[in-house]
């Protein structure tokens, strides 16, 4: 009975994910597409939960749905209203696809169902056994963290480099512009910020600490911290001018730099890149993760701000010029 319900939920998830993906690709309204993308991310997180991958579910919910959603919405604000609706040609073609849609949705669902019910496909365990076998040689009890920071540390190192490069690319496009309208902030929003910010920081620290033995870790902690920073941004809090220079750049690059230093140190010490001394002490992994999560939070938030800090003496992001404010 429980198994049947599980299959039913999986089927529902697979169908709605496919339908959502199609809707968000087919719509000509970019705002609608963004909202659908956020919904898609949330459902995707549910799918990861169903697949027993809570690490991925956390990352998908916070980064895939939350932060990327904000990123897309702010990007949409920068576009002029004419560009928001991408003109689609050939509406008749879309209609025939609309007929095809149920078939498109049902096929992957059937495939999932087949995979779930066939014992052959389910029994392929992949690399799980060999990872767990070597777990005691590293400073962590959680297999996912072990893979991220030890077995496949090279991938993680390059991923953080990609994030850093993305912000460098954003900064090279144009100086920062004021991002939000000059309307006064609602007191309820300030209250929510006061309540949620400590909770977000605490949860982020908890996830970071938990990463060594249970689902959690640098990316999830960093993304939660970034959510807190975005709340601060939305409430018109700014980085003071004296911190938007070298301090901000060090914060952005810090995670990658420390990771790289450890990698290079291992290269000097043991002759292999990222081969941690003593199989990787837990304090070493934890310090890499702490630096990484701070950097990831800063990187995601600066990507949302979009544009480089123009001058050392101005706040980042700058205030919008408000004619009413100048009079008073």
């Amino acid at each position: 009975m429980t198994l049947l319900f599980g299959h039913l939920i999986d089927l529902l998830l697979a169908v709605s994910l496919t339908v959502l993906a199609w809707r968000l690709l087919a719509t000509s309204d970019l705002f609608k597409a963004t909202v659908l993308f956020i919904a898609f991310g949330l459902l995707m997180a549910l799918a990861w939960v169903r697949l027993d991958a809570p690490d991925l579910a956390l990352a998908e919910a916070v980064i895939g749905a939350g932060i990327t959603g904000v990123l897309l919405l702010t990007a949409l604000r920068h576009l002029d209203s004419g560009a928001r609706v991408a003109r689609m040609s050939g509406r008749s073609g879309r209609r025939s696809l609309r007929v095809l849609l149920p078939a498109l949705g049902i096929m992957p669902a059937l495939l999932v169902l087949l995979c779930l019910s066939s014992p052959h496909i389910r029994s392929t365990a992949g690399l799980t056994a060999s990872v767990i076998e070597r777990l005691d040689q590293i400073g962590t009890d959680h297999p996912v963290t072990a893979v991220l920071l030890d077995f496949r540390a090279y991938d993680t190192l390059l991923e953080t480099a990609v994030l850093l490069l993305a912000v460098v690319a954003v900064w090279s496009l144009h100086p920062v512009r004021p991002i939000f309208s000059p309307e006064p902030i609602s007191p309820a929003q300030r209250g929510l910020l006061r309540l949620l910010l400590p909770v977000l920081i605490m949860t982020s620290l908890y996830l970071l600490w938990r990463g060594s033995h249970a689902p959690g870790g640098a990316f999830q902690a960093g993304a939660l911290l970034a959510a807190g920073l975005l709340l601060l941004l939305l409430s018109e809090q700014r980085l003071p001018g004296r911190w938007s220079g070298m301090f901000l750049r060090l914060l952005l690059a810090g995670g990658f730099m420390i990771f790289l230093l450890v990698a290079a140190g291992a290269l000097v010490g043991t002759g292999t890149l990222l081969d941690y001394p003593g199989g990787g002490a837990s304090w070493l992994l934890l310090s890499i993760e702490a630096a990484l999560s701070l950097s990831i939070a800063a990187l995601l938030a600066t990507a949302v701000i979009g544009g480089r800090p123009s001058d050392r003496s101005t706040e980042f992001p700058p205030r919008r010029k408000d004619p009413a404010g100048e009079e008073g």
Partner: peptide, 16 residues
């Protein structure tokens, strides 16, 4: 509790 607080605030912000 968290959903209550954030849901109420967001509803207020949208209405505003």
């Amino acid at each position: 509790f968290l959903v209550l607080v954030s849901g109420a605030t967001i509803a207020h912000l949208i209405a505003r």
